[in-house]
Design a binder for these strands. Sequence first.
DNA 1: CTCGGCAAAATTTGATCATATTGTCGAGAT
DNA 2: ATCTCGACAATATGATCAAATTTTGCCGAG
Lengths: 242, 242
Amino acid sequence: MESVDAKRAAPPDDPVDELSGASDTGGKVPVHELVYRRLRALILFGDMAPGQAVTIQGLTSQLEAGMTPVREAIRRLISEGGLTFRDNRRVSVPVLSVENIAELKFLRSAIEPELTRLATPRLSVAEIDALERIDTEMDAAIAGGDLESYLKQNHAFHTRIYAAAEAPIMTSTADRLWLRFGPSLRFVCARVESVALPDNHKTMIAAFRAGDAETAALAMRADVLQGMVQIETCLAEDLYKS
Amino acid sequence: MESVDAKRAAPPDDPVDELSGASDTGGKVPVHELVYRRLRALILFGDMAPGQAVTIQGLTSQLEAGMTPVREAIRRLISEGGLTFRDNRRVSVPVLSVENIAELKFLRSAIEPELTRLATPRLSVAEIDALERIDTEMDAAIAGGDLESYLKQNHAFHTRIYAAAEAPIMTSTADRLWLRFGPSLRFVCARVESVALPDNHKTMIAAFRAGDAETAALAMRADVLQGMVQIETCLAEDLYKS
DNA sequence: CTCGGCAAAATTTGATCATATTGTCGAGAT
DNA sequence: ATCTCGACAATATGATCAAATTTTGCCGAG
């Protein structure tokens, strides 16, 4: 089966699986948690465009949930930077500015390599194999032009590494940052045809196998910077155009 | 309108929202925002002990607010790490572990010096004067044994620097980290008589005046590490005791 | 007769919804 | 261009239901 992740019962974040699965799950998880995960995935994988308005009532009908759970999920996402609470008391998907990207670049290149460094000695062989499978699927998605799959596999690749680091505060901090540039990713990748990314992933996997934390961390740093620069140039072009 | 403050007739003790809502106390702020600020201050300044249970209905009566606003505020604080959502669906103030402190040390010493570096060229003379006044009041609070005031002045000192950096993502990230060790601070300071000397603060102020971003950043890094080490040793003693 | 444990009632707490109230945006008239 | 009115969206309350914890009461063993 592809659900290689059998250990984790219900830690705070496992949005990908919950999204693909039906809206109905076991009775133990509260609705506001499910709404949160689904909405989070919607933002993270570019299903909502930057600047798009988000209304409570729209989500209650779209996700078929009550008003209170939707409200709580929205507050949570706002607090994580995935949504913006404007002065009108209305909510929308935030738009990245150039200054924001500079901040994200600094924070991500500080945190994510460190998470990779911590993860290296903790990654089991099975986990590394799983990472390699994810990377392979990612290549297939790129070759096939399946943007949705590409984004999700890329996210899964990073997320699983960070989960292995066993550093909850740093991981949740990194997750928050991903939420910020998520909405722009689809947008960016739509116009950048040649994605030259996977080299870093392959380097990482080899370094994991060799137990070389430093090389893995450097590759992660390169991967992060590569992605952010790509968003940066795309956004600069857009500013120039308009 | 007049219906807004109908509930807050004469609560004798309410210093919290006065502090956080220094400039904006207009009628435009929603209740869930006010509840959030007050609850946040309660956590940040050690009014709630680590491990203490937090109930929705308790807060509705204590803060005299409805159920929905309290609920939203709690979700927000959970998402920021200031509260923990347990498997029982109950909420409590989290307890710091040694591993958590290591993470906080890494993150804070990466982010807060950078914020200081960014802030240095943006700090006006008036702002620096305000910082010096805060530092003076902090000294007075230490001398007078006023722990509450000390914690708030120290927080204000850092917060005002970070606000000047004009880096919203990094600032909100740093704020999140403060929420994590806030509950432990009062606890720590209660037993450590000799509080970390504000040498670093004085160094920072001088560096701000000289426009020396690098020195200011280094002093901030020293200040951060000093604080975290203090919490660390205190927590280690507690582990040893039990 | 007392002590300890087990189980059922009672209480507390959380989750969700339906609804009333309030505020905001926009169309059309002055 | 400004003002008023109506539709729409968010805020906030209280009620209701469900889950979990605590209390209570019972029974048997020592």
